[in-house]
Nucleic acid binder design. Structure first.
Lengths: 201, 201
DNA sequence: TACCGCCCGTGACATCTGTCATGGCTTTCT
DNA sequence: AGAAAGCCATGACAGATGTCACGGGCGGTA
């Protein structure tokens, strides 16, 4: 019997997925969590065989949870399920030790199959997502550029970005200009959206 | 027996919700659809008692589907389920004849209860969402301002917005300036994000 | 050691944006 | 008919932004 931890902030989805997984004879949902922190805490106690984690959750990112889990509980295989599969996320997730990565558009038997696969020590990545990630290429932004661009995402003026990043406004403008050049955008807002779409920030 | 049509672009979620609703003795999922258009076409054939529709779908908006359904199939009650509940959406949905509006964070028994409620001719709106909608107030933007702001959402420069809206750049700047004033933002990008968060665009 | 890339900053310049005043046009309500 | 509101446009001005050139410091690598 494969023991599963399920984490998703959407109660309805979580309950529904649990109902669906429980239909399988060899699968058992032993715990559920609504936030990343909760998932982590629960996993430490119940020590599941597989953790099925939603990528976007209120507090902790799904990837962060996976990172912590893979170091603390090596016996537990983590897989990520997500609505919006961005190439960068996949790359980060794989680096964090995630064994399975699926969009929520897959059918339920695929989910069950993948749970079994990762429980057995295998890996599985959605083919469409994998293709996208490969074609998207690497993140050309330097860490600082990514930081600043992330702050620019909300549309804040440069002075505020500078304050929040503890940088001089001139430096911020240089990083932003560089990022705009690398993304081929025509201003920082477009660049920020572009980078986010690729999962670079 | 209440006959249900389920529409959601995420296969996994849809299947899971179907599994969950089928657990109830008096509920029966008679059809599923992955897109808005598909939902509409299917509904015309199977004539369900209740249509449970996801708000965001690839082609047709959930509200548009509800609109069409309420005029074509008055016997079918429509309810919307959504991940991101924005006040403006709720208002539009209600105007389109939707009888139930729920975030996906609710529990499964709430869902089942609401299905029964709307099937019986009642209405139900998630209290938290309702409170948000009331406190958010009305959309202060004029139709044109909303149009232009929507084009500004992607971060395009003003000249491009003007071209896409078939307006002079000066006019675009005026509308944008007005919208920035109404939203209390410090530039159009922030204003656009703000307006989107409220469901104004 | 020398080179390279990243980090952080300054200054200057041209352009883009946000704001305001103004005016003509149409539609709707009183 | 008159008032009010929205739509579209122009012009002018200040301030924000994007771009470029330049320089110093730091850390890794050949």
């Amino acid at each position: 019997m494969i023991r599963i931890l399920l984490a998703d902030d959407e109660h309805l989805i979580r309950g529904a997925m649990a109902a669906l997984l429980s239909l399988e004879d060899d699968l058992e949902v032993v715990a559920q969590a609504a936030t990343g922190a909760e998932a982590l805490a629960t996993a430490r106690v119940v020590r599941p065989d597989v953790a099925v984690i939603d990528l976007q959750m209120p507090d902790l990112d799904g990837v962060s949870v996976a990172q912590a889990l893979s170091s603390e509980l090596p016996s537990c295989s983590t897989m990520i399920v997500t609505s919006h599969g961005r190439p960068g996320h996949l790359k980060r997730a794989l680096a964090a030790g995630v064994r399975g990565f699926l969009p929520k558009t897959v059918s339920s038997d695929v989910l069950a199959t993948v749970v079994r696969t990762v429980a057995a020590g295998g890996r599985y990545v959605d083919p469409a997502l994998a293709a996208e990630a490969i074609s998207a290429g690497d993140n050309p932004l330097t860490p600082r550029e990514a930081d600043v661009l992330e702050l620019a995402l909300e549309g804040a003026p440069i002075d505020e970005i500078a304050r929040r990043a503890s940088l001089s406004p001139g430096t911020v403008r240089n990083y932003l200009s560089s990022a705009v050049g690398k993304t081929g955008a025509s201003n920082r807002h477009e660049a920020a959206r572009f980078a986010k779409a690729r999962g670079w920030i």
